[in-house]
């Protein structure tokens, strides 16, 4: 057992040495694998981040009631009180036209244009939050209709629809990434398979001699498998580096964008689990590719 492990360790370092002896070819392979793995993992991070943005609203259908012009502060407060009394309503926030204007001025950057207006064009808004048990499409629809009946209400809008659409889009994107990851994973296997195939054919004479002096297929396979594993792992590392670099470059502008939307949203990089999966996937795919290639060609190379 100890000699077995020692042999594996020797082959490991031998393979590492082989890679170092042909740095250009090794780096090319590693780069190709890195790019192939970076694509799906980069998209994964993107989707994961967007998911984080939408998670804040997820499942909480807010209804915005835009009140008729001239409802006035008092009328709006009275209405809010009335709506609070409804069984399916948890809370009502009131936003006066002045508050709405101030917020719009702050976020939109149209301050100068707003100054040109003689009066505030914005209506008062009531933001209605339904109770937890009313928070499903049927009940929300019912509540929405009730609120629409109210005299002072100009427009009642359910804010859930776009969240749902975004959510559905994200699901679609997620599925798409899986398919992409599968295809690119296959590409990694093929790239590795081809690299190792060339390596096997290059060492045809050596393999023949090893077979003649009693080397088993496992013995011959071992260095190739380690080469595949190491290159795959290095490819995974390269992908991690690529994704992290791109994220680092994008963090600053994204944070600026987020602050413009008054969002506390910030970009998060690949977490430990995703990193482990990325590196593991690289190593396993590299190993698999070389395993397929070696097994495929080892039988063809027999001493003559």
């Amino acid at each position: 057992m100890k000699t077995y492990l020692l042999r594996h360790l020797q082959v490991f370092f031998y393979s590492l040495g082989q890679l170092a002896r042909t740095p250009f070819a090794s780096l090319m392979t590693i780069a190709v694998i890195g790019i192939a793995l970076a694509l799906p993992s980069g998209l994964y991070v993107l989707i994961d981040n967007i998911q984080g943005v939408s998670a804040g609203w997820d499942g909480s259908g807010k209804i915005s009631l835009f009140l008729k012009q001239g409802t006035g502060d008092k009328g709006a407060q009275r209405l809010a009180k009335k709506i609070r009394g409804m069984a399916t309503v948890a809370a009502v926030d009131y936003m006066s036209p002045d508050q709405a204007l101030a917020e719009f001025r702050r976020l939109s950057g149209f301050g100068d244009a707003l100054d040109a207006l003689s009066e505030n064009p914005l209506p008062a808004v009531l933001i209605v939050r339904p109770t937890a048990n009313a928070d499903n499409p049927t009940n929300l629809e019912q509540l929405l209709n009730e609120l629409r009946q109210l005299d002072q209400v100009d427009l009642a809008q359910l804010d859930l629809a776009w969240v749902k659409r975004l959510y559905a889009l994200l699901q679609l994107a997620r599925r798409g990434i899986w398919i992409l990851a599968l295809l690119l994973g296959l590409a990694v296997v093929l790239i590795m398979g081809n690299t190792i195939r060339l390596a096997v054919l290059n060492r045809r004479d050596e393999i023949e001699v090893i077979k003649l002096v009693g080397g088993t297929n496992a013995f011959i396979r071992r260095p190739f498998l380690y080469t595949g594993l190491l290159q795959g792992l290095a490819g995974g590392l390269a992908a991690w580096g690529l994704v992290s670099t791109v994220l680092a470059l994008l963090t600053q502008p994204i944070n600026e964008l987020a602050s413009l939307y008054a969002s506390r949203f910030s970009v998060h990089a690949l977490d430990a689990r995703a990193t482990a999966v990325l590196l593991g996937a690289g190593a396993v795919l590299g190993w698999l590719g070389s395993r397929i290639a070696v097994s495929r060609h080892l039988h063809d190379i027999e001493p003559k």
């Binding site: 050596e206 023949e208 077979k211 002096v213 009693g214 013995f219």
Partner: peptide
């Protein structure tokens, strides 16, 4: 096929073209 390597370890072979690495 699997036993061939072990069998060959008991047979030394010398070639005309040496077959060295």
């Amino acid at each position: 096929r699997r036993q061939i390597p072990y069998f060959r370890r008991d047979v030394g072979i010398v070639f005309q073209d040496y077959k060295l690495l």
